[in-house]
Every structure is written in structure tokens, then in C-alpha cells.
């Protein structure tokens, strides 16, 4: 039995974004970015930022918008 894997950072970013669907998109992106900045290891943020630019990443548009607000991640 196998699981078709969405990369974890994509899945997690989408799950966060789902919580903010009802909000104003700009404000939602801000909050998502803040959440990710607070809780994510820089290497996951870096992957997110990298994938956000790529078409077909499977990222929620809110996550893409949030990624754009994240400062460049520096490895710890």
C-alpha cells in the first residue's frame, strides 16, 4: 500500500491556507505568512518560496501570496 505524496511543505501550506479561505485575501496572505514565519524551519520556508514561483506546484493561491510576503529564509 503506498501513499501518493504531495511534498510536505506544499501539503502543510495548503492546510494552513484552507483555514483562511473566508478572509479578505490580502489579510489572509499576511496571516498565513506570519504563521509560517513563526512556526516553520527555514529550510521548509525556503522550499515553499522556491515552489511558490513555479507553475503547477499545487499550492493554494493564498499560500502563493503568503510565500511572496516571506523574507528570504536563511539556514540555521
Amino acid at each position: 500500500m503506498t501513499t501518493t505524496h504531495t511534498p510536505p511543505h506544499i501539503r502543510l501550506a495548503n492546510e494552513i491556507s484552507a483555514q483562511f479561505q473566508q478572509r479578505d485575501p490580502a489579510a489572509a496572505a499576511q496571516e498565513i505568512a506570519q504563521h509560517i514565519q513563526s512556526f516553520w524551519d527555514p529550510r521548509m520556508r525556503a522550499k515553499l518560496i522556491a515552489d511558490a514561483g513555479a507553475p503547477g506546484s499545487g499550492l493554494d493561491p493564498l499560500a502563493v501570496a503568503a510565500a511572496a510576503l516571506l523574507p528570504p529564509a536563511v539556514h540555521g
Binding site: F39, D41, M44
Partner: peptide
């Protein structure tokens, strides 16, 4: 370090 680290699933 001022950045968060990895959680268990991460």
C-alpha cells in the same frame, strides 16, 4: 538561533 527549528514530523 532566532529561526524556528524542525518539528517531529518535519
Amino acid at each position: 538561533q532566532s529561526e524556528p527549528g524542525l518539528r517531529i514530523p518535519n
